[in-house]
Design a protein around this nucleic acid. Structure first.
Lengths: 336, 336
DNA sequence: TTGAAAGCGCTAACAG
DNA sequence: CTGTTAGCGCTTTCAA
């Protein structure tokens, strides 16, 4: 609980003025090597460290070399992978990363982003919750750079990095339709989430392309956990006229569906959105729509640091492609 | 790129002194409601936000309400889960979290921790790399609270939260020995990592308990990736006299071993350290030694915030238990 | 109830 | 090469 020594303490100990200490610390050449050595000894002896707050106060406009990253849920491997690449990109540029999870709550998003901004982050990478982002807008006006990732910024004039969720979902469902499935179950997360909306739209698109419509009783929205998804899946499978195939709207829900399928896994087709570890090792191996969270994070970081470096080009929207990884579960034919 | 308005701008706009603005901002009662209202209007109009650096400079000793969290690799689900609970615990206390990965490099650990300390974090939760932590020690002296998690602090006088790796590994290997296995392969991560050392020691303990020793040719250290682990596993399986069982020292390595086992999975027993998603869905389901990363994170956060709040009790070491989750792969008998 | 002056720890600008 | 002065944006102290 020692008091941090100040520059004055160092100056006194070295018998010089604070200016000289400042010069030594900032590596300015105009100091006699002998003096510099004396100062450095004093610094070491006292364990002096520059007071960052005072430094930034004086040399203002200096970046804090800190960015904020707000994801939906850090415990989700998808966001963890995204966060890890952002952190990598940041460290390469001598930046550190403040991290937070919104858990899909606008209130929490606002709280966390405000806390980040109070610490004067130079930029923010945000997986935005649906809703109004007035507070983000005011931060933008103050010069904080913002990039949205995974979901668009809902009217916010900022760069964003997205995945072609709708097309990828459509292609996946078309893959099932092509194999003769008609009764395809849809298992979705909360409808308020943009990516989920897109994937559901793609699900409907695939049907529309064939001039048909999904069976309403096979569409289940709103499962937020693996267990909830398992329950909804079980309910679908227990229908008098159950689905012959399932499309699940994210990794957690895919896991829940797998839980519920159990010994029916080789009879009901399944395509899940999101790659997950060991998908290739299950029986049958699981066909998925694979996104690349690392690419999302890396691209977002690249855009953000370009803006921080002064890039003032028009707002960009980068769309990354997801790809269908065919493994077996999606190729199970409907019963004849 | 607007310049942030200062308190003086607000004071000017409201026709008062900066002191009055300061009082309004800090909610001091001694301000005429009418004046306060005028000031508040000006604040809103200019989009004023208090300059945190200046504030902390003046009211010194104020906490930054920021902690740093350094894990080995954020992309690893184990550390992601740990990080998520730390972040939760922090937010409950109005704290934000700076995050970083060391990737098992002492240099990176030092760089990241230094960067955190330069931002005056109130505390650090660290998964320490092996080696000397002199720089951490100097931070400790300056009053920064530190808690080590997952691995001990190597002589650092700080609280730590660990898992009984050695005992858990011994029990797992004993489980294999009890079922008649003698040729048990060991697949390890880098030996420099404390947890890995402990698990290897437990592996040897189990043999020692039966008065035997592991087969040296079946022990392979140093695989740092899933692919490397798969290669080493394949090499073991291709020996003239291959192992009848495998013990893998963490999740990544377990996955690699599973890759390599492929169609031999129902003939070679396997117990892996670390739980992983879908372990129960593989064929055969995988017996694991399960740790609880959320409990590690929560406990570490609890200890850290207690210290930050002024707890000066003697250094504590909390040991959490890992437990053997029996699923099938670990119960495959040796060929007769 | 409000304001003026001083100073937190540091550095820019100028002297010497 | 080194020191002095002033002031970053804010709050403390004291006076009005």
């Amino acid at each position: 609980m020692t008091v941090r020594p100040t520059m004055r303490d160092v100056a006194q100990a070295a018998g010089v003025s604070t200016m000289t200490v400042s010069r030594v610390i900032n590596g300015e050449p105009a100091v006699l090597p002998e003096t510099a050595a004396r100062v450095e000894r004093a610094i070491r002896r006292l364990g002096y460290q520059r007071n960052d707050a005072a430094w930034r106060l004086r040399r203002k406009g200096q970046p804090t070399l800190t960015i904020g990253l707000l994801v939906d849920d850090l415990a989700n491997p998808f966001f963890a992978a995204l966060a890890a690449t952002v952190e990598d990109a940041a460290r390469l540029r001598n930046y550190v990363v403040l991290i937070g999870s919104s858990n899909d709550s606008l209130r929490r998003e606002r709280e966390v982003v405000s806390a980040f901004c109070a610490r004067q982050v130079d930029g923010l990478i945000v997986v935005p919750v649906v809703g109004s982002h007035r507070f983000l807008r005011s931060q933008l006006a103050l010069g904080t750079k913002v990039v949205c990732v995974d979901r668009p910024g809902n009217g916010l004039p900022v760069d964003s990095v997205l995945v072609d969720n709708r097309i990828a979902a459509r292609d996946a469902v078309r893959h099932l339709l092509d194999r003769g499935h008609r009764r395809i179950g849809y298992l979705g997360d909360r409808e308020s989430i943009w990516t989920i909306q897109q994937r559901y739209a793609g699900f409907r698109d695939a049907f529309a392309d064939t001039g048909t419509e999904p069976e309403p009783e096979l569409v289940r929205h709103g499962s937020r956990t693996r267990a909830a998804a398992a329950e909804l899946t079980a309910a679908l499978l227990n229908l008098p006229h159950p689905p012959t195939a399932l499309f699940t709207s994210n990794d957690l829900i895919t896991l829940g569906a797998i839980d519920a399928l159990a010994d029916k896994a080789d009879r009901v087709a399944l395509i899940g959105f999101d790659e997950f570890a060991l998908a290739d090792k299950l029986t049958p191996p699981v066909t998925v729509v694979a996104q690349d969270p690392a690419a999302l994070g890396a691209t977002a970081a690249q855009l953000l640091f370009a803006r921080i470096a002064g890039d003032t080009s028009p707002v960009r929207e980068v769309i990354l492609r997801a790809r269908l990884v065919i493994r077996g579960s999606g190729e199970i034919p409907p019963p004849t």
